[in-house]
Design a protein around this nucleic acid. Structure first.
Length: 504
RNA sequence: GCCGCAUUCGUCUAGUGGUCCAGGACAUCAGAUUCUCAGUCUGAGGAUCGCGGGUUCGAAUCCCGCAUGCGGUACCA
């Protein structure tokens, strides 16, 4: 049987990178076996709905290359794929549970429950709506049938709660963690159906997974504590449960704890695939895409955070990932996110981008700066500096001096390399450069080297001051490559300017 | 507090009773690339496998206890 898996986010904001990894593992697993990948929107909590979040999620997956076979954005035979649009079907399932004695009506108000919680807290205890306390609360277990009917008929708000049986060992079979057992006496009677007529996650999730014929539920570890509830729910409905796999959490790079939006801001790396502007506060959160990451790098990096192929291979395309993936090789413990390794992956994948594509991208940047340069020059520049960039946005930082003369000179470098007499030597070297007609970088190089040797100059010092005059700093690729691209006249101009400006 | 999950170099991890005095990658450091920076290449350091008990001829690997960390404990997902 081919797997049917789903990724089911809530549209409460931008998709977190941990969520992306969950979706990725679902995708890899499902594609490996030629299965179906479904995008379902779990928007049962209307108070937390954020406009634009759903569109964001869809766009993020498009960018990342994670493709769905069914879902809110593309439809499919099991639709609708948004829980708010499935609202009408859930009540019947809640009713069914009540009829069979697996659930009951509860009329306690949130205020009453809060009061009970505070009370318990004061006594250093924990209040739980469970088999120990449900007999003391206001529900269809404690009220007479007439009273319950009366309340229901007169429209008194109610919720439906699951009724955990006593003394039952619930077994969750997890593909990653093995057998997890828990005693039903410690579990609380979770709300399944809310007073606003919407199901909670627990009910909607089980009903949808069943009706959508989901075979494998691959989700974050934060769901493990409610897995026993879900297992019992399947049992209560008499349905066969899908297989569960609870993924380890993605942790913050320093310390412990779940990776959060704040960590990204604090440590300077994105936590979201795409940039996101909060519709309410207007606050902007950075995204991988806008930060110059390529999707292949993000996918590769994420895949290895909690999984590995069992070999020493680290660089893998999506297709290889699909081939190599297996649930058994997912680790059990949380993985700290490492921004440095993310950079390393990106460097690798940026190197794979064809030069002409980089040139096209860079031309746009140059245009934005009002700089006109023909493709042949930009191509030479890109070829020369490509290997030193980690992100495509660094193209400009690493090559600006090819397009504009330095305005100022790096102080540290000048202090170290510019000595009395440097100006005079550079004047000579400028003459030498000018004397090579037609210009040829090899000849220019040889002649300059001759000059340095004949005058017994310090090569490091003179070459670096030469470099400073062209670049403005002691960095960059081979000097004579720079000279060649700039052309002799521009080189001479820059040298003269530097000699004038930098006085020792 | 209660319930659950986890625990191998700084980080991600390999490892499923002997071939592991623990392998790889990122990061770090050093050397090379004879102008610089970056990149690249080569090399180095780095884990008494959380701790304590067992089981076994033999344990990172199996069992028990403890500790620590994390997750959950909402009419949120």
């Amino acid at each position: 049987m081919k797997p049917r898996v789903r990724f089911a986010p809530s549209p409460t904001g931008p998709l977190h990178i941990g969520g992306v990894r969950t979706a990725l593992y679902n995708y890899l697993f499902c594609k490996k076996f030629g299965g179906t990948m479904i995008l379902r929107i779990e928007d049962t909590d209307r108070t937390r709905f954020v406009p634009g979040a759903e569109e964001y999620i869809i766009e993020a997956f498009q960018w990342l290359g994670i493709k769905f076979d069914e879902g809110v954005h593309i439809g499919g035979p099991f639709g609708p794929y948004k829980q708010s649009e499935r609202k009408s079907m859930y009540k019947a399932y809640a009713d069914q549970l009540i009829e069979n004695g697996w659930a009951y009506y509860a009329f306690d108000t949130p205020e009453e429950l809060d009061a009970r919680r505070k009370e318990a807290e004061a006594a250093k205890k924990n209040f739980q709506y469970d088999l120990h306390t449900r007999g003391t609360l206001c529900n269809s277990l404690t009220l007479s049938a007439e009273e319950v009917k009366g309340r229901l008929d007169s429209g008194v708000p109610y919720v439906v709660r699951f009724k955990f049986p006593a003394d039952t060992e619930i077994v969750v079979e997890d593909l990653i963690r093995g057998i997890v057992k828990i005693n039903s006496n410690t579990l609380d009677d979770k709300v399944l159906y809310k007073s606003d007529g919407m199901p909670t996650y627990h009910l909607a999730n089980i009903v949808d997974d069943h009706t959508m014929e989901i075979t494998h539920v691959i989700r974050g570890e934060e769901w493990l504590p409610s897995a026993p509830l879900h297992v019992m729910l399947y049992k209560a409905f008499g349905w066969e449960a899908p297989q569960f796999a609870h993924l380890p959490l993605l942790l913050k790079p320093d310390g412990n704890g779940k990776l959060s939006k704040r960590d990204g801001d604090r440590l300077g790396f994105p936590v979201f695939p795409l940039q996101w502007t909060d519709p309410k506060s207007g606050e902007v959160s950075s995204g991988y895409r806008e930060n110059g990451y390529v999707p292949e790098a993000v996918i590769n990096m994420l895949a290895l955070l909690g999984w590995n192929p069992g070999t020493e291979q680290e660089i893998m395309s999506m297709d290889e990932l699909i081939q190599l993936f297996s649930l058994e090789k997912i680790s059990k413990s949380g993985a700290k996110f490492d921004p440095e390794k993310a950079k390393w992956f990106n460097h690798h994948y940026v190197q794979q981008i064809p030069v002409n594509q980089l040139v096209a991208e860079f031309q746009k940047v140059l245009e934005g700066k009002g700089i006109k340069a023909d493709d042949s020059k930009v191509t030479r520049v890109v070829e020369l500096i490509k290997e030193r960039i980690y992100f495509t946005r660094e193209l400009w930082d690493q090559s600006h001096y090819f397009f504009e003369a330095p305005e100022n000179y790096d102080e540290q470098a000048v202090k170290k390399r510019w000595k009395p007499g440097t100006g005079a030597h550079l004047t000579k070297i400028a003459e030498i450069i000018g004397s090579v007609v037609p210009f040829d970088k090899q000849t220019a190089h040889d002649k300059v080297m001759d000059y340095i040797q004949q005058n017994e100059l310090n090569m490091g010092q003179i070459m670096n001051s030469f470099r400073i005059s062209l670049v403005g700093a002691a960095k960059g690729p081979d000097l004579f490559e720079i000279v060649d691209i700039l052309g002799p006249q521009e080189v001479i101009n820059r040298m003269q300017k530097a000699i004038e400006v930098i006085r020792i």
